[in-house]
């Protein structure tokens, strides 16, 4: 277990390093920088001025040097300044994180709490009416993009109830917050729940065919003990992996959904920052998202070891 943990942790650091390089280089390769955009919108170009600003922002330095400066800053907790607002990047990013984190957590909870139980039901009642309905629903979940589902939900709410909770100011109570985020979280989580459900179903069906399930039944265990105590834990192994991978898709889904539902989270902010080539914001935000995804996958690996003794003991 110890060796496994250390190996996974090392792999996580390596991944983060790779990601940081890719983010940085990709961002510099995209044509146009903040200066171009500023001058574009001003409608005039003064080359001397342009060079001066680029120098101020450090954009004239070779890319490796810029990279080193960024990472050096990161290590000291200095994320630089937003080009647009000229405030410290950390001050811009930090307050938006809880919003997105809550939304993401709700979406993930939605996908697991819907996906796993319905996946189990679908498998246990294979080929029943319930199974067919669930399978059609999950297929639709996989084929509906979250932003479109979000729009449908918005329109549906307004058409039927004439109104829906929408973000205008920070919610006052936990209940308000739940209400506010329920629709966007469902819009984003629906896709993952569909995926989790299908995977839980196929994984359960596979596990239910195993010899040890027959053994459990042969000693007189009840159907629910067989399904939940004996089968589900084995069936969850591949599902847990996919939930980790889904974390990345979830954030992708949030980017558009935050825009659709007008929620001031990091995801929507990221889109704005990309539009203005606000490098400090973009690279730090993307890096932050990468850290979240990688850490989630690290947790998933740990969970995997908890669930599967074969991994725990093989070191």
């Amino acid at each position: 277990m110890g060796a496994y943990l250390v190996r996974r942790f090392g792999l996580m650091l390596l991944t983060l390093f790779g990601i940081s390089v890719i983010i940085f280089v990709l961002l510099r390769v995209v044509p146009g920088n903040i200066v171009d955009i500023l001058f574009d919108s001003a409608g005039m170009v003064n080359p001397a001025e342009k060079v001066k600003i680029e120098k101020e922002l450090g954009l004239d330095l070779p890319i490796p040097q810029q990279y080193a400066a960024w990472i050096g800053g990161l290590v000291h907790g200095d994320l630089g300044y937003s080009y647009v607002s000229e405030k410290p990047a950390i001050a811009e990013i930090a307050p938006r994180i809880p919003v997105t984190a809550k939304l993401a957590a709700m979406a993930l909870a939605f996908s697991v709490l819907i996906g796993v139980p319905f996946g189990v039901i679908s498998a246990v009642r294979q080929n029943s009416a319930a199974d067919y309905v669930l399978r059609v629903l999950s297929l639709s979940g996989l084929s509906l993009p979250s932003f479109w589902l979000g729009l449908l939900m918005l329109m549906g709410f307004v058409a039927w109830f004439g109104d829906m909770p929408i973000y205008t100011e920070p919610p006052a109570t936990l209940w308000d917050e739940l209400l506010l985020y329920a629709a966007p979280a469902a819009a984003v989580g629906f896709r993952s729940s569909a995926l989790v459900m299908r995977l839980t179903r196929s994984s359960m069906l596979e596990v239910l065919r195993q010899d040890y399930i027959r053994t459990a039944r042969s000693k007189g265990a009840s159907a629910s003990s067989v399904n939940y105590h004996h089968a589900l834990r084995n069936a969850m192994l591949p599902v847990v992996t996919v939930i980790g991978l889904e974390a990345a898709f979830l954030i992708g889904g949030l980017i558009v959904t935050e825009t659709v539902f007008n929620i001031p989270g990091v995801a929507r902010f990221l889109v704005e920052a990309i539009r203005t080539r606000d490098y400090p914001i973009v690279q730090n935000l993307v890096m932050f998202i990468a850290v979240v995804v990688v850490v989630v996958n690290f947790i998933v690996d740990m969970l995997y070891a908890v669930l599967d003794p074969r991994i725990r003991y093989s070191g």
Binding site: Y212, T215, A216, R233, D308, P309
Partner: peptide, 12 residues
């Protein structure tokens, strides 16, 4: 059963 390798639950 015939298959002792697979007849016990691996996670218990």
């Amino acid at each position: 059963f015939q298959e002792p390798m697979t007849s016990l639950n691996p996670v218990l």
